[in-house]
């Protein structure tokens, strides 16, 4: 097992080299970064000076080599737009996205798995059809529209939740990890904790709709498969309590494909939920990267791509390890 993990981690290196090189090339192919960065008012001489300073006049492999060299020294570069170290921005925006994504994923798992299991168990009943209809709506609902509707109903009309941001103006918080909920617990700041949770609720709910629907559908179909298996019939024949049959024998075996879905969806959520972050003015990765792409702020794009690649590789690894854990028949050589 240890060797397997090590091998997977070593495999990460060519993957990262590949994606960052690809991202770098793509960015340069889509137009001259100097024009976008300098703006419409810049003179040709200025653009040239900018190109020179950013090293854009060198051949692509040299530029890329320089990027790799700096990366090995732990330097992600400086954002062209804000002149801040990219690493400093990453430390701020990534935790914001992590907080949102995890909250959404927790909602999705807590709602999706029981609902899916119930729907599978009560196959072809009103509950099943209702759940499936609901999840279809969940998958196909434009998140932009849903977000605005949530704001309209729960923030404006009912006044239960705030419309934007991560904390109320007037609440101060000493940040350690930039995960505000964790930070407020670590510093024992109850007021900030309440405010952070309050601000997190609506965006997390909006972001959770699609993964909830996916997880519910996946759990349901896996349950349907499993419920027809011999071992379930055996379990029932043994006279086990129905609850034990469902939870220990059926659901446990049905979860294998669900774990894959959870893993992939977590990856997608961590890659930044650009629409949710935009609607709820959540200062996270998605907006950061998209703004950077639009502005050709390539040090930021590079860092973003790097982070996403690491996330996906790690999540895949965790999912694979989880497989072995759930299903002892699976062994990695």
């Amino acid at each position: 097992m240890g060797q397997y993990i090590l091998r997977r981690l070593v495999l990460l290196i060519p993957v990262l080299i590949g994606v960052t090189f690809f991202a770098y090339g793509m960015l340069l192919l889509t137009g001259d970064p100097a024009s976008a960065l300098a703006g419409e008012h810049a003179s040709p001489e200025m653009r040239e000076a900018l190109r020179e300073r950013l090293g854009l006049n060198d051949p692509l492999p040299i530029q890329y080599g320089r990027f790799l060299l700096r990366l090995l020294q732990g330097d992600l570069g400086t954002s062209v737009m804000t002149r801040s170290p990219v690493a400093a921005e990453l430390r701020q925006f990534f935790p914001a996205t992590v907080e949102l994504a995890l909250a959404a994923m927790i909602i999705a798992v807590l709602v999706g798995i029981p609902l899916g299991a119930l729907a599978g168990y009560k196959h072809n009943t009103f509950i099943d059809l209702g759940t499936m209809f609901g999840s279809l709506v969940g998958v196909s609902m434009p998140i932009f529209w849903l977000g605005l509707m949530l704001l309209y109903v729960f923030a404006l009309k009912l006044g239960w939740f705030p419309t934007n941001g991560r904390l109320d103006p007037g609440v101060s918080l000493k940040t350690i990890t930039n995960l505000y909920i964790l930070d407020s617990i670590l510093t024992g700041n109850a007021r900030a904790l309440v405010s952070a949770l309050h601000h997190l609720a609506l965006p997390a709910f909006a972001l959770a709709t699609i993964p909830t629907a996916f997880i519910a559908r996946m759990t349901r179909s896996a349950m349907l498969d499993v419920l027809g298996e011999d071992y379930v019939r055996t379990a029932r024949a043994k006279g086990l309590d129905e609850w034990v049959v469902i939870a220990r024998h059926a659901l446990k075996n049905a979860l294998l494909p669900v774990v894959t879905v959870i893993g992939l969806q977590t990856g997608f959520l961590l890659a930044g939920a650009i629409l949710t972050e935009t609607i709820f003015a959540w200062p996270g990765m998605g907006r950061w990267i998209v703004n950077a792409i639009v502005a050709r702020n390539f040090p930021v794009v590079q860092a973003g791509v790097l982070v996403f690649a690491v996330i996906f590789v790690f999540i895949n690894l965790i999912v694979d390890i989880a497989y072995a854990w759930i299903d002892p028949r699976i062994r990695y050589q």
Binding site: L102, T177, L251, K252, L270, I326
Partner: peptide, 23 residues
Amino acid sequence: MRKTLLVLPLIVALIIAACAMPA
């Protein structure tokens, strides 16, 4: 089942660790 439930906290812990590390 018990093992399954451990997966999610594992992901959570890993990510929190990733966030906390550079800090």
